[in-house]
Design a protein around this nucleic acid. Structure first.
Lengths: 229, 229
DNA sequence: TCAAAAGTGTTCTAGATACACCCATGT
DNA sequence: ACATGGGTGTATCTAGAACACTTTTGA
């Protein structure tokens, strides 16, 4: 703050934009919508909204996410604030970007149709309005960093998942294959997965055992992160 | 964005606040100012300012930093955006926090007096206005993470520095002692330090060789980070 | 019986850690 | 001569990487 009074400064429109990641078992995807209003109507865009006078940015982002997905308690984290003068064609708007991780299978098809939303693989993101492409790229980078040290990958999977599914997810995030034995070894060594006495039989004849993430065990061990990759 | 027009949303005052880190050879410190205007006049605070209509947040932060330090080209990075409804006692203001690293020895004493600024060791931060304490803590966390993978520690030291100085810095950042032999070994193994044929003789009789950071070598090796701790 | 994916151990290598003595110099 | 901080090497341990075969079962 400098010595000028608050009043001599101009207020600015503040938006949030959400990069919503999902994983379909093969590709890491982002949920985009066809923008329904001007400017740039009809173009692909991130889901966003303005920050209202009675909410903070986290609340605004959660509201936007709920509008689009119908879900609450989505994993969500602030990413970065974009403030270039001409980033929004309609005027000065700064945008606080959030990234969110959801279980793609739980996503409501109905809402998808209502919003004209679509999942795009990260390597096939269409042309986006404004600086949204930059946001997606930054979110992807942050996802990689976070996943390496925090057990957030599980947010992208169903409650019950198999080790091959988990591995596919990590391979999709890092765009690189991992050795099955080493991967399994490391994940199990973390001691935060509980094996269920039940198999997933869709994707193979033999079937793969389901696991669940044991959040209690995780929190006991290392509240501030451990190495996941 | 939702279907409402931009106009139906309220604009918000947008500020930047800077967490400025320095290292005096022993302690990691943050530069704080005595706030010169209401509300909370006379209390300790981060240096901040509003984002003007003709600048983006990075530019605003750079301007604020230059006001306080007289320096340009300071290492600076966006940290997080704080937007709680009641974070500023004077009204709704969101603040984009930045952290900056400067060579404390190059800091202009004159400006320090003008701004009633003072360096505080990180473990002796006084009571701060608003949510500034949260900002400082978050900045400290980010500094640790960044320093581990990026050669930004050098920003806190003079151009010429000794290995004992570098080690003290890392020890201050991580609040933990390192083994001298292992530290030296690792730093030299990175291959990004150039030994000068010149010694620093203030702090010991024998004297310690000066080194300089070789940014060119660093960039050649790994543009996207390496392990520094 | 065979195709397709799941499951499982050992060896090797590199990086991290632990550890103690001599060196250079100013007083 | 001695006190102070600077400089250096080796042995051990641990985590990560490389690598191939057997198991299960539906078709």
């Amino acid at each position: 703050m400098d010595i000028n009074s608050y009043k001599s400064y101009q207020k600015i429109l503040v938006a949030v934009d959400c990069i919503i990641f999902g994983f379909d078992g093969e590709h890491l995807k982002a949920l985009l919508i066809k923008r329904g209003f001007e400017p740039e109507k009809g173009k692909w865009s991130l889901m966003g909204g303005f920050v209202g006078k009675d909410e903070n940015a986290d609340e605004a982002a959660a509201r936007v996410l709920q509008d689009l997905t119908g879900m609450e308690n989505i994993y969500m984290e602030q990413l970065y604030t974009f403030s270039d003068l001409s980033r929004d064609a309609a005027g000065r708007v700064i945008s606080i970007a959030y990234f969110a991780l959801i279980n793609i299978a739980a996503y409501n098809e109905q809402l998808q149709r209502e919003h004209e939303a679509k999942w795009f693989p990260l390597n096939k993101i269409p042309s986006l309005i404004f600086d949204h492409r930059k946001m997606v790229m930054k979110a992807k980078e942050m996802l990689r960093q976070k996943v390496a040290n925090h057990p957030i990958g599980f947010e992208l999977l169903p409650t019950k998942f198999t080790l091959p599914q988990l591995q596919s997810l990590y391979e999709a995030i890092y765009e690189t294959p991992f050795d099955k034995r080493n991967f399994t070894k490391k994940m199990l060594a973390l001691g935060i997965l509980n094996k269920l006495n039940e198999k997933e039989k869709q994707s193979s004849r033999k079937g793969a055992f389901y696991y669940i993430f044991d959040i209690a065990k995780y929190q006991k061990l290392h509240s501030n992160g451990a190495k996941f990759v």
